[in-house]
């Protein structure tokens, strides 16, 4: 069950896994996410589907090592299995009927953005892509996006590739020059906040996708609460994609840091010389 079929390290601490999950693949749409659990003591981790292949019966996920659980997933090898994999969850986004769409990704955000771009492209939209990353090494899926885009811009914080600066610098330029009917932006909360501020000035519809903390992914825990247009929504059943102009980003930025102290505790527990790391090697 849920066996890793292929593994590729895309960048430093960023890994792509193709996983055998035919039933999930048969129902996956752009915007859907999964919840996975690696072992009995593991967390339930939400991950946006980065690609799916219905014929092969596989789904692809891309994970960045940011803490214990994500590192554990990145350490899986071909042939290893996830203990649990639930999906597809969330509401898919509408991808048909657009003429020109700007797709903006920050860092790992390129992964959840990819299936949406694929589907928008298939739906007949012209795609302009802006890929941002801290530096060249952390840039992922450039080739994949290039194939689908009429133009592709790269920005890095340090200027190691493309434009030195932020995705919003390029986006502003594009919005000035092109007649765009939608922007899809996925990346760090702060990036989505600034992209949405900018597109609001231009009056361009914007979709963002949130990677909220959650347990069940089915509306049961309410941990993924987000204020959208003044109302409380649940990312898992109402999202994870929302109207970027309505999301309360500052609240989301705060909520993301809820368990930062606990993350350190897990690390101390696992690596803290108590010898309690079972199954090592």
């Amino acid at each position: 069950m849920y066996r890793v079929l292929e593994k590729e390290v895309l960048a430093l601490k960023i890994t792509r896994l193709k996983v055998d999950a035919p039933k999930v693949a048969s129902k996956a749409e752009p915007g859907h996410f999964l919840i996975v659990r690696v072992d009995e003591k593991g967390e339930r981790i939400p991950l946006t589907i980065a690609d799916y292949d219905r014929e092969e019966g596989s789904i692809t996920i891309i994970i960045q090592e940011v803490g214990f659980s994500s590192e554990q997933i990145c350490n899986l090898e071909v042939g290893d299995e996830f203990l649990d994999l639930v999906g597809p969850l969330g509401e898919p986004i509408k991808t048909g009927g657009y003429n020109k769409v700007v797709c903006v990704a920050g860092g790992l955000g390129a992964a959840p953005l990819y299936p949406k771009v694929k589907s928008l492209h298939k739906g007949g939209a012209e795609i302009i892509t802006i890929l941002g990353a801290r530096n060249e090494e952390l840039l992922i899926l450039e080739g994949d996006f290039e194939r689908l885009s009429s133009s592709l811009y790269v920005t890095t914080d340090d200027g190691s590739k493309g434009h030195k600066g932020f995705v919003t610098d390029i986006l502003k330029q594009v919005l000035e020059e092109e007649d765009v009917d939608m922007v899809v932006a996925i990346g760090p909360m702060i990036m989505m906040k600034f992209v949405s501020q900018l597109t609001k000035e231009y009056g361009v519809k914007t979709i963002v996708s949130l990677n909220s903390l959650m347990i069940d992914g089915t509306g049961m825990c309410g941990g993924c609460r987000v204020t959208v247009g003044g109302d409380t929504k649940f990312s898992c059943v109402d999202g994870p994609a929302f109207d970027g102009h309505l999301v309360d980003y500052d609240e989301q930025l705060r909520r993301q840091n809820f368990y930062s102290k606990h993350e350190q505790e897990v690390k101390d527990h696992v690596f803290g010389g108590e010898g309690c790391r079972v199954n090592e090697g």
Partner: peptide, 23 residues
């Protein structure tokens, strides 16, 4: 929500954190 608090503790065994990884 009580659901989340109790699910973390009961289903995910957060009362045995950090051995169990859900905080």
């Amino acid at each position: 929500s009580a659901n989340e608090f109790l699910t973390r503790v009961n289903l995910m065994k957060a009362y045995r954190f950090p051995e169990y990884k859900t905080p």
